[in-house]
């Protein structure tokens, strides 16, 4: 069985073909990063236009790489939320159209479920595990009892970790997306050069908060002259990144203690940061799994795979399933 996955929830147009053995036959992604970089972040209207422009081309390339024809597709799986509605709709309407013209079933998938299951595409991860989805839009820990059975146990109350990195990057002159360059500069800096407080959310000890750290680093940045800021760039990157990941590690320790699991997985854009992986691997008592880089950021292979598992458990969706900008995983605790 070949599953065509389509992912357009944010600014990447992605189409993949995965078979029922979990083998990735193709995983094509067209990034819009350069179009949004000049605006310092994603412009939703531009993102959805680019999806419309790119969707067919990315789809054809994916079929070509997988060396299959349209008629070899058995199931269409598409992200139905959470994400930017305009962007989601392009992918979903294209998928619905394909479902009708190919006469094949369709499955709408929660983007977060895709991320949570993505490590399973390349590794054997023991259930139950704790999934950390960490990106520019999300930072949350989700207990994965089995495929389809999830419980969100912790999330950020304000900025996402990747968003915090982008905002910090903007202040020190690093273009969006700032994470990769911050990671590179941090390697050359001293993570203890600046001390930032460990955030605490009074009402919920398992919750995370990144906006306070951002304010702290802003105070430091504004206190420096432009010459000093240039000199201190590496140290600031190392110290800020350390503070963010220490907060994630402290929260990870708490959730793993409260919900005994056999492993922790990390996925989402920030999971590509090797320092985060090292911080969690060194600091936790459970093994830490992360997908290959191409599967850690937004991609369609994870949507195809999650679609296959859902289809096996529930059968197809109706063509008029809804698209949601805010789709909680709680609605997925049914399988």
């Amino acid at each position: 069985m070949n599953i065509l996955g389509i992912e357009t929830s944010c600014d990447d147009t992605a189409v993949a073909v995965v078979n029922s053995d979990g083998e990735i036959l193709s995983n094509v992604l067209s990034s819009q990063t350069e179009f949004h970089a000049k605006y310092g972040g994603i412009v939703p209207e531009i993102a959805s236009r680019k999806h419309l422009e790119l969707i067919s081309h990315v789809c054809f390339e994916s079929l070509e790489k997988a060396q299959i024809k349209w008629s070899d597709i058995d199931l269409i799986s598409v992200t139905k939320g959470p994400g930017l509605v305009g962007s989601l709709l392009v992918g979903v309407e294209y998928a619905r159209g394909l479902s009708v013209v190919l006469k094949k079933p369709i499955k709408g998938i929660n983007h977060m479920e895709g991320h949570l299951l993505s490590p399973l595409l390349t590794q054997k991860v023991p259930f139950p595990y704790m999934g950390l989805v960490i990106s520019g839009g999300h930072t949350e820990f989700v207990l994965v009892e089995k495929s389809g059975k999830y419980l969100k146990v912790s999330s950020t109350v304000d900025d996402a970790c990747g968003e915090s990195l982008d905002k910090f990057g903007k202040q020190i002159g690093i273009l969006y997306p700032a994470g990769p360059l911050i990671e590179k500069l941090a390697i050359e800096g001293n993570s203890k050069a600046y001390q930032f407080p460990l955030p605490k959310v009074k009402k919920d000890p398992l919750a995370m908060s990144f906006s306070g750290l951002k304010t702290s680093v802003m105070h430091v940045i504004t206190s420096l002259s432009s010459e000093d800021l240039l000199k201190e760039k590496q140290n600031l990157c190392a110290s800020y990144q350390y503070a963010l990941f220490r907060h994630v590690l402290v929260t990870a320790k708490k959730v793993v203690l409260k919900y005994p699991v056999r492993a922790l997985t990390i996925s989402g854009g920030v999971s590509a940061n090797m320092n985060l992986y090292k911080t969690l691997s060194d600091g936790l008592s459970v093994p830490v799994f992360k997908p290959a880089k191409k599967l850690s950021t937004d991609n369609a292979a994870m949507i195809a795979y999650a679609g296959f598992l859902r289809f096996k458990a529930e059968g197809p969706d109706s063509l008029n399933f809804e698209v949601f900008s805010n789709l909680p995983l709680a609605s997925y605790n049914t399988v």
Partner: peptide
Amino acid sequence: FTGIRTGLAISKTFVDV
């Protein structure tokens, strides 16, 4: 704008396939 994109996304599948 949303409607324009929706109609075109659907119609593209007829050309593509």
